[in-house]
Amino acid sequence: MTSTDTAYQLSPDTASSLVEKLIHKLLHNDDTSGEFLLPLPDGRVIDTKGWSGWEWTHGIALYALFEHHLLTASSSSLHIIHDWFRDRFAEGGTTKNINTMAALLSLAFLYESSPTSHPEYKQHLIEWAEWVTNDLPRTEEGGFQHITYELENKGQLWDDTLMMTVLPLAKIGKVLGVERYVEEAKYQFCVHIKYLYDAKTGLWFHGWTFEGRHHFAEAHWARGNCWITLAIPLLFHILGEEDDDLKDRDSFFARHLVGTLEAQLDALVPLQDEKTGLWHTLLRYKDSYVESSATAGFAAGTFLALRFGLIKDDTKKSKYSKMADQALKGVVGMIAEDGQVQQTSFGTAMGHDLDFYRNIAITPMPYGQALALLAIVEKMALSQTAAG
């Protein structure tokens, strides 16, 4: 955007209409062909596209719905979340891994908001947090190994992990008052920054392996980067003013996190596609397609960072705000009449060459709907904060 551009605004009626469409499509996004179902060796079939499965795709959506509830007091969004957990627990839950942990972030928020309404939630929070801290496989230096339904990924750190597992652990620690959970989450941020942050560009690599000690394809994958844009301000949001390391914005830990975030945002500004406002799925390669879910994540994370006052420099605040507004405008332009967020790439494993990322299928997914919803909600929240 140029210096003469004005902030992108959505009227309350337009925002409400878009949110309604996004949520409707989120709940009615069936994989009729079976192409995107995930069959497991034990006979289970995980539906990553529809609403009745349990995967990280649903975890991201649950959190977006909860943020919508917080902003608007929407009872329908809250009921959707409670109903999802009721149905999944009735089915017996699921296998614990890095990705399935994502849903526990919303469960912790639910329990915190009304601990007497659903006291049974507490035991689930304890069970998952204890699994993470005691039983989840670790890499060298104690990093969370990115195990999934299918793959052990021995010795591997992925940038997804901070969003999917570390933030839920931090929130559970905060809600239950268990300091060792919180301290473990902080350590995971440090070790993931150490091995996945690319000091040459300010961006993040998708993954690192201690077996061979390399970054696989050295891909600066867009959606993986957007998890970082979200995760850093969300850690401040989750731990809040009660945490000594974060309430003091001049502390080592706070400065380390914000500096890492600002470096990433600075790198993102010149890489944003001028025509669409979106970013390419390989951030530094214009021959890869532009991708909506990552763009929505970048917008939402930037709005969060601005709302929580993490960016102090006025010039940077203006620059990042314009970038996020242009991104939101681009994402809104990708929302079809039926609410489908177009240009969303499918769930992505670790790639060993850049063409792997160029060839990821484009298809509607829960996180595409959710990240677009979150971007709109965080823009609304930021506007309310600015208005006083």
Rank of each mutant, 00 (worst) to 15 (best):
Cys226His: 07
Leu167Met: 08
Tyr320Asn: 05
Tyr197Pro: 00
Gly59Thr: 11
Gln272Leu: 07
Val132Phe: 10
Ile228Glu: 03
Glu211Trp: 06
Ser288Gln: 02
Ser292Cys: 09
Glu130Gln: 14
Lys329Ile: 01
Met380Asn: 14
Asp313His: 04
Pro39Leu: 01
Leu167Cys: 04
His118Leu: 03
Thr94Gly: 13
Ala361Leu: 10
Asp243Val: 04
Trp208Gln: 01
Trp204Asn: 08
Pro39Phe: 01
Met164Asp: 04
Asp355Gly: 01
Lys316Ser: 01
His118Tyr: 10
Thr201Ser: 15
Glu67Gln: 12
Ile81Asp: 15
Ile81Gln: 00
Lys275Arg: 10
Gly143Cys: 03
Gln369Pro: 08
Glu20Arg: 15
Gly143Arg: 02
Trp221Tyr: 14
Lys319Gly: 00
His24Cys: 08
Trp227Tyr: 10
Tyr320Cys: 01
Val175Asp: 06
Thr363Cys: 03
Ala296Asn: 02
Arg307Ile: 08
Ile335Leu: 04
Gly177Asp: 10
Val290Asn: 12
Thr276Asp: 00
Asp31Gly: 06
Ile23Val: 15
Leu169Ser: 01
His192Thr: 06
Ala170Ile: 11
Pro41Arg: 07
Gln340Leu: 02
Met380Lys: 14
Glu211Lys: 08
Glu242Phe: 02
Cys190Lys: 15
Gln340Gly: 01
Ala185Gln: 05
Ile362Phe: 05
Ser11Trp: 11
Cys190Ile: 15
Glu337Ala: 13
Gly177Ile: 11
Leu328Arg: 14
Gln272Ala: 05
Glu291Leu: 07
Leu40Tyr: 09
Gln145Cys: 13
Ile360Cys: 05
Gly143Tyr: 08
Arg86Cys: 05
Ala299Gln: 03
Thr95Ile: 14
Phe85Glu: 09
Ile80Cys: 11
Phe356Glu: 10
Glu140Arg: 06
Tyr285Trp: 09
Met164Ser: 07
Thr281Ser: 08
Trp221Gly: 06
Gly309Ala: 10
Glu242Ala: 13
Asp198Cys: 06
Lys312Ile: 01
Pro233Lys: 12
Asp355Tyr: 08
Glu35Thr: 14
His146Cys: 09
Glu184Ala: 12
Arg138Val: 12
Val290His: 02
Leu104Glu: 09
Leu278Arg: 06
Lys317Val: 00
His220Ser: 02
Lys25Gln: 13
Pro364Gln: 07
Asp5His: 11
Leu271Val: 00
Glu378Pro: 03
Ala102Cys: 14
Ser292Gln: 05
Leu278Tyr: 08
